[in-house]
Design a protein around this nucleic acid. Structure first.
Lengths: 287, 287
DNA sequence: ACGTTTTGGATGAAATATGTACCATGGAGA
DNA sequence: TCTCCATGGTACATATTTCATCCAAAACGT
C-alpha cells in the first residue's frame, strides 16, 4: 500500500457524500481530496466511488473496503487514546464536551472555577448537543444528558434531570385560555400535559426557554434551565416529570490521565453540590 | 490523528531496528524516516523510541502501540487484497515467489512457457528462499518447499521433494575412503547417512550442488536439483529420503483473481508433468 | 589505539503535494 | 426557461516534503 493516510480521506468522502464536503470536514481543499481519492483508486486499480446526482456513491469494492477503513480508523484512534493516557503530566489540554444549555444555565461558574484552580490545564470546551465521539477523541470528557446510560464509557450518573412546567411572569399576568404551549421536539415529541394549544416547536431547550421567556406561552423545560432563569417561573399545576439523566463520562483508555482525573473529580463535586438544582428540588438559582 | 501513513514508517523502524534500516526497507532516505517519526511522536505527545546502542528501542508506549499499528497494517493489506481480487481483467501483473534453486533447476522452462502463453500478464518473479508474505501481498502466488504445510493459505500440495545422495563423475572416478561429505545446514542439520567426513557445510541447496559438482565430495540434495544436473550422479547406496513437500499457494482473498487462477492452473499442470522428476522417480532430466 | 563502518542529525536543492484560481455540468427554485 | 447554487475537474503558482550531502558520534574489527 502506497499511502495509508488516504483512507482518512476516503472515510471523509463516504461520510460527507461529496468531495467538497469531505474537504470541508478535513480542512483542506476539494482539489486535494479529489487528487488523493484518485491516487488511492489508482494504486488499488479500481474506482471506489461513482459520481452520481445524489453525491459520491460507493462502488461494490468501495463498500467492501469501508469496514476495513473503519478498522484502520479505529486503530489510529486507539493509538491516540493510548498516547493520551500515557501523558502523565498535569499540564496540557483536556477537551470537555457539554450541551450549550447546560453550560450557560448551570456550569459556567464551576467551569470557570476549575480553570482558575488548574491554570496549567488548558480546557477546550466543546458546546455540542450531538454527543461527541469519545473513541475518536473528539472529546476527552463529556457531560451527557440522556435517557440511555451508555455502558461502554467510563464514568457515572451524577444527577437526574427532570422536566417541569415553566412560563414567564409576563405570561402569567395575562394568562389566556386555553394556554399557549411551547413544545420541544428535539427530545421525543412531547404533547402538552395540560389543555393547551401548541404555538411553537423548539428544537433546543435554550430556544424553548427563550420563547417561553418572551411570554409566548408555557412549556416543559429541564429544571436546571427553568429554575435558574429569573424571568421564568415554575407552574405548580404539574409536578416534576422524570426525564433525563446526567452522566459524566470518559473513555476507558484515558481515564487514568491525570487531567481527565482532576476534571472528572471536579465535575463530580460540582454535581454533588448542584444536584438539588438539577433535580428541581431547590427553586432558587444558586449561581 | 494527523497522518495515518506514519504508522507505516513506525512499523518499519520497529522491524529494522534503526532509522537507516527502515529507510532502506521503505526505499526512502533516513532523513525522511527520522522526520516522520519525530512528527508522529510530536502529535502523540510522547516519544516512541529510545536511541540505544543496539538500535532503536521501543518505549513502553511504543510497545503498546505496536500491536495497533499491526492491526492498521493488516487492514491496509486486506484492502489491497480485496482490490486485487476485484480486478477481473486478465491483463495485469502477478507476483510469483519461488526459491532460486527450484527456478533454475526445474521451472525455468515452464515459466517461460507461461509468459509466452499469456503475454498480457506481466509476471513478477521473486526469487526468495524466505517465504514471502501472502497477507501483505509481497507475492500473489508462492511455490513453497516446506515440511509444514500451511493451513491458512489456499492451494494444494503438488509433489513430494525427497532427497537423494549425489556426487560428481569426477569424484566417483577417484573416490576416497572415507567419503567426503557436503552437508546442508540450511535445513535441520543433517548428518552423513553413510560413513563419511564432513568437509563442508552449505546454507543453500544450490551452493551444496555447486560444491558437489566441483568434486569436493558427496551429499544429499533434493532430487529436482540432483537429477536435472548432468554433472551430478545419484549414488545408489542410499535410497530416496523423504523430506519436503512442494506447495503452490495463494491467499484466500485473491484466489478468484483470473491472473492468479491461470497461473495456479498452469503450475498445477506443470507439476503434474514434473512430479516424477521432483519425486526422484525419473533419473533423466526433462528440461 | 587506530581506522572502518554504521548510526542519526542538519541543511540547501529538487521533487512532490497543496492551494487558488477558473471552468463545465447539473439540479433546484423562481 | 431562466438564474442561482453547489458540485467536481484542471492549470498554474505556492508550500511543503523529500532527497542528496555532509557532519559528528559511537561501535566494531584489526
Amino acid at each position: 500500500m502506497e499511502n495509508w493516510d488516504n483512507f482518512r480521506i476516503f472515510l471523509s468522502v463516504t461520510r460527507s457524500g461529496s468531495i467538497r464536503g469531505a474537504a470541508k470536514m478535513l480542512g483542506i481543499t476539494h482539489a486535494t481530496v479529489s487528487r488523493r481519492i484518485k491516487f488511492l483508486e489508482d494504486t488499488l486499480g479500481s474506482s471506489l466511488f461513482e459520481r452520481k446526482r445524489e453525491g459520491q456513491c460507493l462502488t461494490p469494492l468501495g463498500q467492501r473496503i469501508l469496514p476495513l477503513a473503519k478498522t484502520i480508523e479505529g486503530g489510529c484512534a486507539e493509538v491516540d487514546r493510548l498516547a493520551f493516557s500515557a501523558d502523565t503530566g498535569l499540564a496540557g489540554t483536556v477537551k470537555l464536551s457539554l450541551s450549550e444549555s447546560l453550560y450557560s444555565g448551570l456550569l459556567h461558574a464551576p467551569i470557570d472555577d476549575f480553570m482558575q484552580r488548574y491554570p496549567m490545564i488548558k480546557l477546550d470546551i466543546i458546546a455540542s448537543d450531538l454527543m461527541s465521539n469519545l473513541a475518536q477523541r473528539e472529546a476527552d470528557v463529556v457531560i451527557r444528558i440522556t435517557r440511555n446510560p451508555p455502558d461502554t464509557a467510563y464514568g457515572r450518573k451524577v444527577a437526574n434531570s427532570p422536566l417541569a412546567l415553566y412560563t414567564s411572569h409576563k405570561y402569567l399576568a395575562n394568562r389566556p385560555a386555553p394556554d399557549r404551549w411551547i413544545a420541544m421536539d428535539y427530545a421525543p415529541a412531547r404533547k402538552p400535559v395540560i389543555p393547551a394549544q401548541v404555538v411553537a416547536n423548539a428544537n433546543s431547550p435554550t430556544l424553548a426557554a427563550q420563547l417561553i421567556r418572551s411570554g409566548r406561552g408555557m412549556g416543559l423545560l429541564p429544571c436546571y434551565l427553568g429554575d435558574t432563569d429569573p424571568e421564568l417561573e415554575r407552574v405548580s399545576e404539574v409536578g416534576l416529570i422524570s426525564d433525563m439523566q446526567v452522566w459524566v463520562l470518559t473513555h476507558e483508555d484515558i481515564k487514568v490521565n491525570p487531567r481527565v482525573r482532576v476534571l472528572m473529580d471536579h465535575l463530580y463535586q460540582v454535581f454533588e453540590k448542584y444536584r438539588p438544582t438539577l433535580e428541581g428540588l431547590k427553586m432558587t438559582a444558586s449561581v
